[in-house]
Computed example of a mutant assay.
Amino acid sequence: MIYGYQRPLFNDKDMHIQTAILMDCDQVFTENHGRAKKRIALEELLMTIEKGDTIRVHRFFSIADSTRHLEELLKICKRDQVTLHFMEENITSTQLLEKSLEQVLQFFLIFQSDIVKQSTTLGMAEAKAKGKSIGRPKKSDDNVKKAIDMYQSEKFTLLDIKNETGISKSTLYRYLETIE
């Protein structure tokens, strides 16, 4: 049997890309969240596979959340004599790699980058849901007004303004653009 596995990712929340890639699988296991913990569909898939089966995923990060997790999944597949096929990288767990070290490192750099992007996206969504503001806090209006007044008086240097108000040159210019 050919199984597919997908989950919501930072760049494919609705799983349209993954669904299109996994269309020709006999059965697709779909996770309802993109977090690392409580991956029920993945556990169900791992309990279902049998010797000679293939698991297809869009890319490394579609199934694994860390290098260690990827290694564990590869060991399980090897033990159970199941092939894990990473479609985007065009690599299977059973083939001898005919890739250069540079290509392999590039795959892992992308994988690590995906891990960071996914956790950042999930963290920001959770913070927004809790009502927390995202990004750098805004400067107080009084401080901004004071910096603009100092700048427009032409009596102070940019360094004086920064030391007095804590507002950098680029931030000051950004505020000045909004009032012009």
Rank of each mutant, 00 (worst) to 15 (best):
A41G: 02
G34K: 01
L96S: 09
L42E: 11
E44G: 03
F60R: 01
T121E: 08
T54E: 13
T92G: 05
Q103C: 03
R7M: 01
G166N: 09
I161P: 00
L42N: 02
A147I: 00
T30I: 12
L96C: 02
L109K: 14
H58T: 15
E164Y: 08
G123D: 00
K117I: 08
R39I: 15
G34I: 02
T120P: 00
R79C: 07
K145Y: 08
E89F: 13
C77W: 04
F107A: 02
I115P: 02
D114K: 10
H16D: 06
C25T: 09
G52M: 09
M23T: 15
G52A: 07
N143W: 06
I76V: 12
M87H: 14
A125V: 08
L84P: 03
F156K: 11
R56G: 04
K38F: 08
E31A: 07
S170V: 03
S170I: 03
S153H: 02
I161D: 02
I63P: 04
Y3A: 10
E44C: 02
R59W: 07
T54G: 00
V116Y: 09
H85N: 04
E71L: 13
S119M: 11
K139F: 09
K51S: 12
I110R: 14
V57C: 02
V116E: 14
Q81F: 01
K75R: 14
H58W: 15
L176N: 11
A125K: 11
R68A: 14
